[in-house]
């Protein structure tokens, strides 16, 4: 791997991990700063029940901004989500202007509300597992997210969430 490829790989990996930290902390603005203006975010899953690929959520960058700004107006579960991610692969396009990354993802929920907060608060439960399938725009040795597909394995999502995954 030449130095440029190594630098791009490091930049892509850094963005994936930073995105996890920002999303964990509800630092939506910082997350959006990792995204190009053309960013498309989606949550998808394949249903073995209806044997179809499904899209659970889809937004562009502007809509993501609106969505996150709206969160204080919505009644939501107070239990924060915590991501554990491992960047499995980073592939740089032949033109050197794009890259893709596959990241294994587990999202835990640290119970605040739970079913009965008196009992459940402090417990950590597995919320979902899946992958981040990310695409990046490369400029020199820096990268910006242009597409994130959260590909879920988990489809029993119980109460769900208002938050980005």
């Amino acid at each position: 791997m030449n130095a440029m490829k190594a630098a791009i790989t490091a930049a892509v990996t850094d963005i994936v991990y930073r995105s996890c930290l920002y999303l964990d902390n509800g630092n939506w603005g910082e997350f959006l700063n990792l995204c190009d203006d053309s960013m498309i975010y989606s949550i998808k899953a394949y249903s073995v029940e209806i044997r179809r690929d499904m899209e659970y959520l889809s937004h562009n960058k502007k809509e993501l901004g609106t969505l996150t700004e709206m969160l204080p107006k919505l009644n939501s579960d107070h239990s924060p989500l915590r991501r554990h991610a491992s960047v499995y692969t980073v592939d740089i396009g032949e033109d050197g202007e794009t890259a893709t990354a596959v990241t294994s993802l587990a999202v835990y929920q640290n119970m605040h509300d739970g079913i009965n907060s008196h009992i459940d608060s402090g417990e950590t439960r597995l919320f979902l597992v899946g992958k981040y399938l990310d695409k990046f725009k490369i400029s020199g040795e820096s990268a910006l997210l242009i597409e994130r597909e959260v590909r879920l394995d988990t489809r029993r999502l119980d109460k769900g969430t208002h938050h980005l995954i």
Binding site: L74, N75, S76, D77, D113, K159, G160, T161, H162, H163
Partner: peptide, 15 residues
């Protein structure tokens, strides 16, 4: 949807 604006709130209600 499971990440939509209303369903999560309805399910919080019955929980």
């Amino acid at each position: 949807g499971p990440f939509g604006r209303n369903l999560h709130e309805d399910l919080l209600g019955i929980t």
